[in-house]
Nucleic acid binder design. Structure first.
Length: 376
DNA sequence: TGTTCCCGCCAGTTA
DNA sequence: TAACTGGCGGGAACA
């Protein structure tokens, strides 16, 4: 399970647990929650309430997961969990489908920049936005128009966009692609469509990232943000995990301090963090911040924290890293300090999965720390 | 100024 | 007809 995976990686910094992209985090939590042997059916309401997220966001996640075979729609409001083991078959299916649609395939194995600015470039897959074309057909027929509208809607769906995005990697051998390149290839160059679809591609990429199917990187030439295909059981540059569970990845962070999931800062509805207690310990630790500072008055401040003020999780600052040669007594004391620190700074997640993640992580870190200190 | 993506409106679909 | 579904784009946060 993902919790154990996290527990086995105590060197993971706390910020990776607390600062990240919301949708990616939601997807991670979703996968963590349901990636269990006894899970067969998933209710959307259940998922939304257990994750403490809006139903709307669950739709985004399940659409992407369904596209790569992890879920299958069973009925209204209900999905069947197929699990990560279904991914290879789904990818193979997409690959076959891709080659069937476009037998000539395409070659993205080279530098993706070669097509980045070419306005006349033909799209690799048929444009998803068929509206303009379809609108010209049978304008008088209501039934036809309705069916065309339905078809348009389907064609614009997040699920189909996900599949075509994945096809760019598995059929076209793109190793790295920027989202605007992907949008151009999939949707053509119309500016308005591009803008909208790139937003959707961000959503998709966040979910795929959280599954470790892709990872965020930079285009080699332009240094623009891009995504690299890792594939099923793919390895990030940082991780060598082979366990299937490791496919649940900590999404990369969006770098602003206060935007924690389920935590009410500006936009969110749920209230949060700490109540200003234990000010003594806090004063000692005032240079350690992850998201919010103590007290109601500081909430806004916390919300406005920048990546500059957001420096460390509670694990990093040198002042609190034990010096080599520290006595065992001190070590125990340190662990206790960490313990109290973790209590003081413990984020007040509404989301049960996050609470569990945090607890497991803290537990793992403490035992790792004791063990490591004991060896010295 | 560009990038990233949260958020929720609202139209289409389904039961 | 109510509830579900999800496309879409405004705009905030950040680089």
């Amino acid at each position: 399970m993902a919790l154990e995976v996290l527990a086995e990686t105590p060197t993971l910094k706390l910020e990776t647990l607390t600062i990240r992209m919301r949708l990616g985090l939601d997807a991670t939590c979703f996968l963590t929650l349901y990636n269990k042997q006894d899970v067969r059916l998933i209710g959307l309401d259940d998922a939304a309430s257990r994750l403490g997220v809006e139903r709307r966001r669950i739709y985004d996640i399940v659409n992407v997961l369904e596209s790569v075979g992890v879920l299958a729609r069973r009925a209204k409001n209900q999905y069947t969990w197929k699990g990560f083991s279904a991914i290879p078959a789904a990818l193979q299916e997409l690959k076959d489908e891709g080659f069937k649609e476009n037998p000539a395939s395409c070659d993205g194995s080279n530098d993706s920049s070669k097509m980045s600015d070419d306005e006349d470039e033909e799209e690799t897959f048929p444009k998803l936005d068929a509206e303009s074309q379809n609108d010209k057909e049978n304008p008088d027929s209501t039934a036809a128009a309705k069916s065309i509208k339905t078809e348009n809607r389907r064609e614009k769906s997040l699920a189909l966009l996900t599949q075509n995005f994945v096809k760019l990697f598995i059929c076209c051998n793109f190793e790295i692609i920027t989202l605007d390149e992907a949008a151009k290839l999939l949707l053509g160059n119309a500016h308005k469509i591009m803008r909208t679809k790139v937003r959707r591609l961000y959503d998709i990429a966040n979910v795929l990232s959280s599954m470790n199917l892709i990872e965020k990187t930079h285009a080699t030439n332009t240094k623009k943000p891009a995504f690299r295909w890792l594939g099923f059981g793919g390895k990030t540059s940082e991780s060598a995990d082979t366990d299937q569970n490791s496919i649940i990845k900590e999404p990369k962070k969006r770098m602003f301090g206060g935007d924690l999931t389920n935590i009410d800062l500006k936009r969110n509805k749920v209230g949060l963090f700490m109540d200003g207690q234990n000010s003594k310990v806090q004063n000692e630790q005032e240079n350690i911040s992850y998201g919010a500072q103590t007290g109601k008055n500081n909430l806004e401040k916390g919300a406005k924290q920048t990546t500059k003020s957001y420096q460390f999780g509670p694990f990093a600052p040198a002042a609190y890293v034990p010096k080599v040669g520290t006595s065992e007594n001190n070590t125990v004391k340190q662990v206790h300090n960490w313990d109290s620190l973790s209590q003081v700074h413990r984020p007040q997640y509404q989301n049960q999965v996050l609470k569990d993640l945090f607890s497991h992580y803290m537990q793992a870190w403490k035992s790792w720390y004791s063990e490591a200190a004991g060896k010295k």
